[in-house]
Design a protein around this nucleic acid. Structure first.
Lengths: 150, 150
DNA sequence: CGAATTTAGTTGCAATTGTGACGATCTATT
DNA sequence: AATAGATCGTCACAATTGCAACTAAATTCG
């Protein structure tokens, strides 16, 4: 072997799975974020908090963080912002008074319903563009990944 | 219809493609980032810059940003950091003197080679855990996505 | 040519995010 | 019951990021 350095396998970023995954996720997220940002002025942590609460009804801040993998200060700030909008209410737990039980107000539920619709439409559009085959593959691939890192 | 609000389809985050994609990408990225962070103290923008330069040889800062979708200030700072380490050199272009041609030093190429090896190993491990079927599905799914947003 | 526009890269500043410490409360152990 | 340790949420502060203005240089066009 004449030249050692040229023998090292180069890394082709376009083929590297973590890179591709990141870029795809980022691209899709940006598009979707545009919708809730433009229509409702929501940040990403706020949207996630809203969506998590909308799905589960009543949760603590910690539970929201655990479920949506957000740092607790992020959740704390998102909760504050949503509270300012009167989209959620806090209620101190009577039994464990460290805990706040968070739930959406009527206005919050209304916004959530509208955004859930937007989200579903977005996903449907995405999947339809992938075609039935792409959809199956993507879902299977994601499932395989989830199985890996969980 | 008795109750209008309950008729809105709830959004199940665990099934929502953008959410799943994001979580998967984040999880994989974190793992991989641990490797170059712990072993080399590299940040993510630094790693991306190193990898892009390692792959393409000589590039301008703008080209790195375009290729790796990083904001130009991010690239600027990453280039500065890598320069401090003596992992890359700048050369003013003789024809267009606004431009800096960036290239890795010997030390930079050495680090790149080592990290490329780590990256390949990481990817191989990941794919082997997915199994041949998961690998095919994931790659097909990613390809479908890339085809969508490009 | 020479003024206006565009491009490359940096820097200051503002917004966002993460870290660590904190007060309050609960639980476990003795 | 009392002390020690864990947990919940917040806040001050530090690091990271993004935006906008800037310098320097090239290009366009009258």
């Amino acid at each position: 072997m004449a030249d050692e350095t040229s023998a090292t396998p180069p890394l082709i970023l376009e083929d590297f799975i973590p890179y591709r995954l990141n870029k795809a996720a980022e691209a899709i997220s940006q598009r979707f974020a545009g919708l809730y940002r433009d229509q409702y002025g929501l940040t990403r942590p706020e949207w996630r908090t809203l969506a998590t609460l909308g799905q589960f009804g009543t949760l603590t801040a910690t539970a929201i963080g655990t479920h949506s993998s957000m740092h607790k200060t992020k959740v704390s700030r998102a909760v504050f912002a949503l509270e300012q909008r009167r989209w959620l209410r806090r209620k101190r737990d009577d039994i464990d008074r460290r805990i706040e039980n968070l739930e959406l107000t009527a206005a919050g539920r209304k916004a959530y319903a509208a955004l859930a619709k937007v989200a579903h439409a977005f996903e449907e559009e995405l999947l339809s563009r992938l075609g039935p085959c792409g959809e199956t593959e993507l879902k299977a691939g994601l499932a395989a990944l989830e199985n890996y890192y969980r």
